[in-house]
Amino acid sequence: MAARIELNSLTLRYAMASTPAVSGLSCTIPQGSCVGVVGPTGAGKTTLLHSLAGILGKHHPELMVSGNVSIGDESFGGISREILFPRVGLVLQDPSVQISGVRDTVFEEVLFTLENVGAVGDDSDSRIQLILRQLGIEHLAHRKPTSLSGGETQRVALATILVARPEVLLLDEPISALDATAQARLRSILLHLRGTTTVLVTDTQIDFPLSVCDRILALDHGRAVVFAEPQQLLSNDQSLPMIGGWQRWRDIARELEGRSDSSHRDTTRILKAIHLA
């Protein structure tokens, strides 16, 4: 079951920092939607994801927090100071560190998560098989988790999180080390999750989020520059140079809008079709 995320004037400042990592962030992410968090390095994308997962609040008790985060019905009065797994699952930028190394096969590696959360039962085997099938890695079930390629490791890391059925899935720059085929596969996985899991994907470039997300949250120096649907973002008159690839897509969108056979409403659909092709 997906959960709605609500950020209310969220400001996060590290103890020694002169400026906040996240500043006055407010937005509502509907349950089951997919949101792309884009922005340059240091924009606060990873900080935001880590705060939602609870890892930031736990590891940085000195962190100055104002505003509030709510996930589903639960309001944290700031941010969570406890790790929220399995409710919220986070896949780190380097998925290889997510492989524990204490299990011989991919199947056992995924089972390790169920053991951790105390969810091992009669249906565990079928649950794991289903996840592996959905992610297209059922053929890797008996392979050693540390002997896989970058794309395969990414999907195994995703499986280790998804098997716990999180309400919210957070992906920190998931395509940074993926080739085009692996990116396309990840895109279809995220499209498959739409409606059942609330997903937040970060990236420095807009290309991937544009092709898969319902909304884009653009951050710059910890502030929300824009939070809009892809077609609004591309037809926006506001200049967004801090988002990698935005100018190129806006040029394409404008060109398409100029054509008589293309309505404004269809622009994003066409863009997505081009991108997916």
Binding site: T113, V117, G118, V120, A164
Partner: peptide
Amino acid sequence: ESIDRGTALELRGFLNRRTNCEAS
């Protein structure tokens, strides 16, 4: 890498394992 790996294991519920895994 040790910090990242430790964080990743925490994110998979490893530190709650004792209370959670008694049955498993």
